[in-house]
Design a protein around this nucleic acid. Structure first.
Lengths: 204, 204
DNA sequence: GGGCATGTTGATCACTTGATCAATCACGGC
DNA sequence: GCCGTGATTGATCAAGTGATCAACATGCCC
């Protein structure tokens, strides 16, 4: 008895495949995004995944892009509901470091480690990091324009903030350090960078 | 014609294998530490590597430990030649972020990303991160004892410093950001954490 | 100078990976 | 209704992985 065959439009199938790839990556990391694993999750022959994906390297790269792009969109939406720039930064730090996004963090870290062997992924990672830096820089620019922050080089500070966030997030991956208790410490480190008085970030 | 066979002591052979594994990891990352790749580098049959290594997962883990342990020892030796705590921290930051150690950085980042699938590696990573934190904390304690730094929670600040270092290092892996021009920015962020006046770290 | 403990070989197994492609068949347009 | 476009299958290939093990041979000890 041959397997029952369901026929979808190319667009629908493409969406199913990218969805399955994203789910796999979030559950078990980018290394789990495999021709056969994706096919099995969609419930389809392995050849079909190969038919739609230019190559697995590119599928992995675009899956990474989907995930971190979605994360940024989500965060952007959350922060857009907050008017005060200082509160925005505080929420940014609290959200990114609350330890509830280790799945996305794993994908980030793997993109850096796999970039050596997957050029498409490396390019996507560069692009997405730029996106993040621009996002943070815009946040800072707003604060400067309103007179809340005093920052000379917003691009540079954005880069530094992103580095701190990524480093501390990566550390939580190996279940190391207590993310909650030391957030205050990070806030105290960030305040001078924004030209804020000590304590402004913490007591919101 | 059978391959010429050279017979070494178990200890010598073991050393050759760990050396080859380290070289491979530094050149092409931990993923390149493969049964056959190590064997080829030593110039030996693949079975021999399997004979000496409990498993490849453990060889990868111990190779990681060798590399980052060596890095810390090297840095420790360098810093021990410097008396002034402030100069020590400045040298620490300058050395770690000078962009000349991307090979070690890659190994670090991969250990976080591969820990999901290699428990021995994850354990080793945790252990080595503890080692680093203790090293930095001791550095801070010295500065506090001499009255140069004013830090309440040296463990916490050490954790934060390590996070910054790792995050910024990881970013250099994807050739992103200009490490040189923005080191000064990092120094300005670190100064308040150590209770230093602004500019003390930069102008040494 | 034999003998044997043990370091060493390399073929082999079972498995996973990405990729290819002829064959098949479902479905919309005529 | 039937026909052909195009989605779908699944076997297959080549490559690479870790692990195992009987056979082999080297070099040290007596």
């Amino acid at each position: 008895m041959p397997a029952p065959r369901t026929r979808r439009s190319a667009e629908q199938r493409r969406a199913e495949i990218t969805d399955a790839a994203r789910e796999l990556a979030l559950a078990d990391g980018l290394a789990a995004v495999t021709l056969r694993a994706v096919a099995a999750r969609v419930g389809v022959a392995s050849g079909l995944v190969a038919h739609y994906a230019p190559s697995m390297d590119e599928l992995v790269a675009s899956t990474f892009g989907d995930i971190v792009g979605g994360e940024l969109a989500e965060l952007s939406a959350l922060l857009s509901t907050i008017a005060d720039p200082t509160a925005r930064v505080a929420t940014l730090l609290a959200t990114v470091l609350d330890g509830s996004r280790t799945d996305v963090t794993l994908v980030w870290v793997q993109s850096w480690g796999m970039g050596e062997r997957n050029e498409a992924l490396a390019a996507e990672a560069r692009s997405r990091m730029d996106e993040w830096q621009q996002f943070i820089a815009a946040l800072l620019d707003t604060g400067v324009a309103l007179g809340d922050f005093r920052v000379e080089d917003t691009q540079g500070v954005a880069w530094l903030l992103l580095g701190m966030i990524d480093g501390l997030s990566a550390h939580t991956l190996v279940r190391w350090g207590e993310p909650g208790g030391r957030r205050e410490l990070l806030e105290r480190a960030v305040e001078p960078l924004l030209g804020l008085e000590s304590g402004r970030l913490t007591s919101r």
